[in-house]
Design a protein around this nucleic acid. Sequence first.
DNA 1: CTAAATTTTCGATAAATAATGAAAATATGA
DNA 2: TCATATTTTCATTATTTATCGAAAATTTAG
Lengths: 174, 174
Amino acid sequence: MKVVTDQKLQHAKDEFVAQWGALGTQWGINRTMAQIHALLMTSPQPMCTDEVMEELAASRGNAHTNLKELVNWGLIRMIVVKGDRRDFYEAEKDVWQIFTIIARERKKREIDPALSILNKCAEETKDLKGMEAKAFHNQMKQLKEFVSFASKMSDRVASLRYGMAIQLASKILG
Amino acid sequence: MKVVTDQKLQHAKDEFVAQWGALGTQWGINRTMAQIHALLMTSPQPMCTDEVMEELAASRGNAHTNLKELVNWGLIRMIVVKGDRRDFYEAEKDVWQIFTIIARERKKREIDPALSILNKCAEETKDLKGMEAKAFHNQMKQLKEFVSFASKMSDRVASLRYGMAIQLASKILG
DNA sequence: CTAAATTTTCGATAAATAATGAAAATATGA
DNA sequence: TCATATTTTCATTATTTATCGAAAATTTAG
């Protein structure tokens, strides 16, 4: 029975890692990064680079680069095991933490640059005369205001504690 | 003065189209699709395929494919001009509409598939014994519940009218 | 200081994705 | 119906992005 359990567990884990990796590409992060994240989120212990390489059949360079990138995001952290000179890594497992980290990162990559373009185009056309120029300026302004609003919402929500977020959500869903 | 205005306007439009296109790639949609969307969002009239090709220096195949894709998303619509057998296209310009369309599409591509993986992995491990299996199952469950919650929120918010959304937002931002 | 272990970098290669352009299919008006 | 305009498809090519793997750099123990 123990063996069967282990097999089933291993199967589910492998599936999770593989599928999460495939999803990652939909998501704007590469397969290996998403796979490492999945692997560490479901690993009972921190893992070192060689274990990650082995588990995912990835090269050292690839494993290394993506481990560092995940550390940059804040989705995993480096762990020092004393008496061992290798670096180990463990994932943030709290779902709300994961969510806020991803929200911040996406805002940085997707919302902020859009806002800067919209601001620039709105600014450049604000004094122009003529129907067409006014229509363009107005469209930029509308977009800009909306994106700016979305940006603020994103910050606000990501800064809430989980409990507060749930409370807020109940107002929306209820 | 008219010429200067036209030049400035043209410059701002070109910039918007180019930059929006570059942003699109960050976004999981290809450059041409984002450029066409930018172009049509800021065009006073509907445009036909050849006009789009010309404006973006894109091939017919590329323009065609991405126009159709934008129609599928619901971000633009086909317009029939009588006495003209070409297809014309115009963009949805309302920012709240644009937002809800994109939210729906992202949910479909990013949230729903994640939820299905998490459900499967949680289901497969729900009866397993042992610490490790329980920990894995619990992690899947946590993730699943959160993603499912995010999915409901997304639906709910995207179904609101703009006025309601603003009202709700004021509770959050205020 | 030296040697071994480990991390980091990076040019080369592979894989995935986007774009082209021409041929085929379809629709329209005479 | 036929000729022409327009749309659609898709094999080929180009571009971008991801991965490899080995060399260089760094760290640590003795």
